[in-house]
Nucleic acid binder design. Structure first.
Length: 255
DNA sequence: ATGGCCGAATCTTTCGGA
């Protein structure tokens, strides 16, 4: 089974790229982030006509997550259950597919760091950590895949000096990532690739792709049952070189 | 070809992203 995550930055602009990729790479389950549309505007039939199952948590204009699967989807949660806010943002979808629990996750960005946005990011992650703790009750692989907006360590960005004061890399945020891991989750990419420097995001600005100025912020976290079964984890950077690409590339793990 | 983003909605400008 291949489980993937891709911040697509508008599903309607890139639905053909998504379908083409999951077919050519033989992806079984794909979590999407930043679909940037309400559920009614998600191109569901484009995927269901090709025999995929689709679940969507939409929002107008920005955010939004979805899951596309070769196999039937049982929805477990349409948000983080213990995260209460006045207007819920579409950032979390948790499902069961076959004998796997899988989530598509879009963690808030948090910039600028001297603002309510960072506080929101921290409180969102804290609620997520509490929830992830509860997910450890499942005696099967739990796969928490998404755009975490966290650069876990110095080796996960092209230049630590550029990023060290950013909401993606400040110590408080890196600490949260370690907190999740310390619950008993593994960073799939790092589990498989001990020292590799690879990126999943290159900014549209400043010619970042051409200069290879990237960062690794899209992650697939797995519990110990997942770690027992994992065979490989790869970032497919080729997608960033397409015409009209998303600024993120997909990451996938094979079980 | 050395020169700097992109997407959606509020739409010839603003906001959010990272």
């Amino acid at each position: 089974m291949k489980f993937a995550s891709w911040n697509i930055n508008s599903i309607n602009l890139r639905k053909e790229a998504v379908l083409n990729w999951i077919i050519t790479q033989d992806i079984d389950v794909l979590g999407l982030q930043e679909i940037k549309c309400e559920e009614a505007n998600f191109p569901k039939s484009f995927f269901t006509d090709n025999n995929y199952f689709v679940e969507v948590i939409g929002q107008k204009g920005y955010n939004g997550v979805a899951i596309i699967s070769k196999y039937p989807i049982e929805v477990l949660n349409r948000n983080i259950p213990n995260f209460i806010e006045e207007i819920s943002q579409a950032r979390y979808l948790e499902v069961k597919i076959k004998n796997y629990v899988f989530s598509s996750i879009y963690v808030p960005n948090g910039n600028p760091i001297n603002s309510e946005k960072l506080k929101y990011k921290l409180s969102w992650i804290e609620a997520f950590i509490e929830h992830a703790k509860g997910l450890l009750k499942f005696e099967m692989p739990v796969i928490l895949a998404g755009d975490y907006n966290i650069i876990p360590e110095e080796i996960d960005c092209w230049d630590e000096q550029v990023w060290k004061n950013d909401a993606l890399a400040i110590p408080d945020i890196r600490f949260k990532f370690r907190e999740i891991k310390n619950l008993g989750y593994f960073d799939s990419f790092r589990l498989i690739n001990k020292n590799k420097c690879e990126w999943s995001f290159w900014d549209y600005q400043n010619g970042s792709w051409n200069k290879d100025h990237g960062i690794r912020i899209d992650h697939i976290l797995i519990n110990s049952y997942g770690a027992d079964e994992i065979k490989d984890c790869k970032i497919d950077k080729s997608l960033r070189g397409l015409n009209k690409p998303s600024d993120h590339t997909p990451i996938f793990a094979t079980f």
